[in-house]
């Protein structure tokens, strides 16, 4: 564990609390892509199989994984049951097969060993890299977002961005790197660059998040 990974994880944790806070206080999941949230459940469910089949890492690791699994399922429940009337599927139109198909193929090609657990682990890494796309696509379509939604996205983006110095640190201290996680993580962070730019230049200056026409 190093400081970059710890702050990254805390940022990930914060993003989920921000999202829950947004849904609970506004009693609405307006502006949140159900597809992206469903992809995160898929990501956690396929990666955290290692809770059952993998080696024990640490109590921290187990608790965080259980939290991410539980909270992401709870968010789906809020969107599909409790606050269903506020969820508008007609603007959440990104085609999931464009993500699931390529991620499946990539996972079958690039994995540590050709076993179900390792293929699913790779699949979860690739899928996580692009899981935000339905959400960003929705933002693009509506052209604006509530401030709280942008704080959620910023915290979520910062999480993987902070993993990059963590991998650099690990490369120098452990002498190795993980090409699957690192390359997917760079792509994942790259997808946020446009968003980060508008977040920093507008939202953090107190302006509304609006995409340029």
């Amino acid at each position: 564990m190093n400081i970059f990974r710890l702050i990254g994880d805390l940022s990930h944790l914060a993003s989920i609390f921000i999202l829950l806070h947004k849904i609970q206080t506004t009693r609405s999941c307006r502006g949140i892509s159900f597809k992206t949230q469903a992809l995160y459940v898929t990501v956690f469910a396929t990666r955290y199989l290692d809770l059952i089949f993998g080696e024990f890492v640490s109590v921290y690791n187990v608790i965080m994984k259980l939290f991410f699994l539980g909270s992401s399922c709870y968010i789906l429940y809020l969107m599909k049951m409790k606050y269903k009337p506020t969820n508008d599927p007609s603007i959440d139109t990104f085609r999931l097969e464009y993500l699931l198909g390529p991620c499946t193929v990539l996972a079958l090609i690039f994995n540590f060993s050709f076993t179900p657990v390792e293929i699913l682990w790779s699949f979860s890494i690739f899928l996580e890299a692009v899981a935000i796309l339905p959400q960003l696509f929705m933002l693009q379509r509506t052209g604006e977002a509530e401030a709280i939604t942008t704080h959620y996205l910023a915290a979520l983006g910062a999480y993987r961005a902070l993993y990059i110095p963590n991998w650099i640190y690990r490369y120098y201290t452990e002498g190795s790197w993980d090409p699957i996680a690192v390359l997917a993580g760079l792509v994942q962070t790259g997808l946020y660059l446009d968003f980060f730019y508008i977040y920093v230049t507008k939202v953090l200056q107190g302006q509304k998040f609006e995409l340029p026409a």
């Binding site: 080696e55 690791n61 965080m64 994984k65 991410f68 682990w121 993993y163 452990e174 190795s176 790197w177």
Partner: peptide
Amino acid sequence: QPQPQAHDEL
């Protein structure tokens, strides 16, 4: 065989 590095991350 050691575990691949990122397997101990979240």
